[in-house]
Amino acid sequence: MLNALQVFTTVVVGLMVGVEFSVAFVMNRILNALPEDSAQQGHAHGGRMLGALMPVWYIGSLVLAAIWAIAGWHQPGTGLVVTAAALLILSVIMSVLLLVPINNRNKTWTPENRPADWKQQLNRWERYHYARVAVIIAAFTLLVTALV
């Protein structure tokens, strides 16, 4: 049972890392290459769509890692899992404090009501997102290492 939990947790976190990596290094570049109104509207739509899904994924990943750490407390690699869970906590805190406020504003913007500094706000979101991606990649790497 513990093996199934370990594999499931690793897959869930790995898929989350893949989605967030894709947002950072593929989707944002595609959206930023669109004409101005289309770029902003694409970011707003992505914010609405992923903004509804990702909180569940982040919290779910954290819960799974915590269950793994508790269930495997006396197993080799538990320290790695605890560290990964701590990094997932950090990613949730970063999301709530840094990324979500910008995303909540962005997802309501239209070409008619967006603020003058909308590009600067989206650039700030992207920088925070890069840092969050690095954190979840580190967490994923620790989980994979603990698994093997």
Rank of each mutant, 00 (worst) to 15 (best):
P35Q: 10
L64H: 00
I93G: 10
N103Q: 13
L15S: 10
L50C: 02
H45V: 15
Q75E: 14
G77H: 03
V144Y: 06
N123C: 02
L15A: 13
A24G: 09
L88T: 06
G51T: 02
S22I: 00
V11Q: 06
Y58E: 14
V135Y: 11
R127K: 13
G46V: 11
R105D: 10
G46W: 10
T145G: 04
T10S: 05
G60L: 04
T83N: 01
G46F: 12
L5A: 10
Q121N: 14
D117T: 04
L15D: 03
Q40D: 03
L88G: 02
A131Y: 06
K119I: 10
S38A: 15
Q40I: 10
G18Y: 13
T108M: 09
A146P: 09
I136Q: 05
F25Q: 08
M27K: 15
L31N: 15
A65G: 07
N28P: 03
M16T: 15
G42D: 00
N32D: 14
V148C: 12
R114D: 00
Q121S: 14
G51H: 05
A86M: 12
R114M: 08
A44W: 06
T145A: 12
V96L: 13
V81C: 02
V26L: 13
Q120D: 13
I67Y: 03
A85V: 00
P76S: 10
V148G: 15
A4E: 07
V26N: 08
V82D: 00
T78C: 06
P35G: 03
R127E: 05
G79D: 09
V23K: 12
G79L: 11
H43E: 11
A84M: 05
L15Y: 14
F140I: 02
M54C: 09
A86K: 11
W68M: 09
G60I: 04
P76D: 07
W109N: 07
P101Q: 03
L31R: 15
D37C: 00
N113E: 00
V11R: 09
R114T: 01
Q40Y: 05
F8I: 15
S38D: 11
I70G: 03
G77E: 01
L88F: 03
H45M: 15
N106P: 01
V82R: 08
A66I: 13
T9Q: 01
P115E: 01
V12K: 04
L99Q: 15
S95M: 11
V7Q: 11
L122F: 04
I70P: 01
A52H: 12
G14L: 06
L62R: 07
I137D: 03
I59M: 14
R114Y: 01
L98F: 11
A84V: 02
I93R: 07
G18E: 09
A65C: 08
